[in-house]
Every structure is written in C-alpha cells, then in structure tokens.
Amino acid sequence: MIEVKNIVKKFGAFAALDDVDLKVADGELLALLGPSGSGKTTLLRIIAGLDWPDAGEVSFDGENALARGAGERQVGFVFQHYALFRHMTVFENVAFGLRVQPRAVRKDEASIRSRVKELLDLVQLDWLSDRYPSQLSGGQRQRIALARALAIEPRILLLDEPFGALDAKVRKELRQWLRSLHNEIHVTSIFVTHDQEEALEVANRVVVMDKGRIEQIGTPGDVYDNPATAFVHGFIGESIVLPVDVCDGRVRLGGKALNIAADGAACGASKLFVRRHDMQVGPAGSGALEGAVRQVRTFGPIQRAEIALSAGETVIEIDAPRDREIRTGDIIGLQPRRYRIFAAQD
C-alpha cells in the first residue's frame, strides 16, 4: 500500500501541494485528475522520488520511501513525452533497467534477453525491437516507455499524462489497452490526467485535485453523481451554474423564489449546480424556471438549446432528448431533476 501523509510542497510562494493525504491500495488503478497547476504531477513526482516534499511522509508498505532515492524505490515512471533513450534501440531501451542493476543482482544476458522479449510481447511491439525511438509513432513510443518501466518489476507504476501527447483516436485506443493491461498484470498504478473522460473511463478510483488540495476521492460514478464540492461539480461533466440566494429553506434566483427545496443548504449567497441533461423541459409555467429558447442545435441523440432565463438575466445551455422538439422562440418551463446547492465561495 502506498501512503502519502500531510505532503506540502512549495515553489517559491506558490503552494503546489498543500497538506495532501492519500492512500493507494495494492492493485488499484488510480487517476489524479485536475486542471493544470493543481499539483497532480508534483504529487506523482514526489511519490516517484523525482521531487522532494517540504514536509510530510511517503511510505510504501509501511517503509519510509523518502529515505530512498528514486532509483531505490522500484517505481516505474512513464513520462508524458516518453523520454525514451534516443540513441538506443527499442530493445536496449527496455533492457536499460536490467543492465544498470548492481552486479550482484544483475541477470545474465540470456535472461535479460528473454525478459525484454516477454515485455515487448506484452505491449505487442516485439517486431520493433531493432528500431530507434525516432522511427516509431507516438502510440508505439508510449507503449515502449511502459514496457521499459515494467522491466524493473515496479511495486508501483506512475504515469504522467500518458496519453497527453497523442491524437484523439490513438488516445482512445491506448486508454482501453491500458485498462486491459492492468487487468492482466495488476500492478498498482497511478496516472495523472487533466482529461475527465480519461479518468472516469480508465480508473477504479479518481482523486480530484485543485490548487494543491484534494477535493474528492471516489469511484468514477461517485465523483460524477455525488460531487463533494462546487469545484468537482463544475470540473467533471458539463454543469449549469446559477447564482442563488438561500434563506429559510427557500431558494431565490434574481429575487424570485424557485420551486425547489434547499436540501439543507446554509443561508446566504450560493450556487445552484445542475447537469445540462438533468433539466426537464416542459410547457411554459410547468417548472421551477422559465425561459425563452434562443437557439437550438441538434446532433446525435440530443438537442442543445440556448435559453435566456426570465429570472436573473442568465443564458444557459441545456441538453434535451429529441422526443420533444424545441423551437427557437418557444417559451418553455424547466425543472431540475437532480441538482446540488453549494455555498458561493469568496
């Protein structure tokens, strides 16, 4: 088990990590998800030993990892831009971790060769073993980087934006491939991404980070359906955000009371979060909100409508199913099926 406790890391006055705690169980596939500057890569590099925290603890199975250098932690690290050794063949890249071992534990040449072959088979690229990195496509390079990291039989595999430099189609393929590879070899893995779809699709658990803090840890379903904070609700999935006032269990938008329960939200300025597809469309006067349709675009199974709300002078976008046609100029009623109210910050 990997345990991170009270980690603080500052770059000058900027707090990259601000008191972060995290436990990763054996065999997990965990995603660190957050916008750039949220501290997710810094956390990953601290676990790997490529950066050092200003305060806090990192332990692997109860042993203090901070007492060891990166090379002694048995951590496989996969870089966003692959970082393959450009002057070595694919084969030698994968063999590197085995060749630099201290003489006492180093394997003989025949075992190194068979191990490298095994790994290249695992990433399905054994036919490329004599090529140089510059002769490979991005997706191939990333798979070789993964094979190289796995060569040292890591206790934990860390991937920094592993698909960030790839085009959309390859990214999608590699995602599924990584998922099935993890099912096959079960090495504890943490990957960093800013792409919510990637995190939700690949990981068992998702850690949502913002401004050096962990906002929420949960399964992909959890963080999507039950966001713990306003940030998580806004960052994951498309949300409609309305500035509301809560008082005595009533919710007001632009001075007008809405016909929805306050759900125990505290008094004061708040934000009402609703998923775009959670707005039920009905005839005028039927819901908590009312507005005029300004524009409708139809694609795939949904119609996306831009609606100017009569209360609060706000324009929102909703996704409605195509069973009930919406036309520009219609006045429609809107009722949130599911919603969350968070206290407005600052």
Binding site: G49, L50, A70, G71, F77, V100, Q101
Partner: peptide, 25 residues
C-alpha cells in the same frame, strides 16, 4: 532532463546515467 530522470528512476547511478544516457546524446 527527462531522459536522465527516466534513467535514475530505472535504477541507474549518477555515473551510469552520465555515461550511458547523457554522454551518448
């Protein structure tokens, strides 16, 4: 410095990193 970081995380010592990764590059 990414190739050097990769080498270090794969267990290479400082000298191994210099002679096997930095210098050939």
């Amino acid at each position: 410095t990414q190739e050097e970081e990769a080498a270090v995380s794969l267990g290479a010592s400082g000298l191994q990193t210099f002679f096997r990764v930095t210098l050939p590059n």
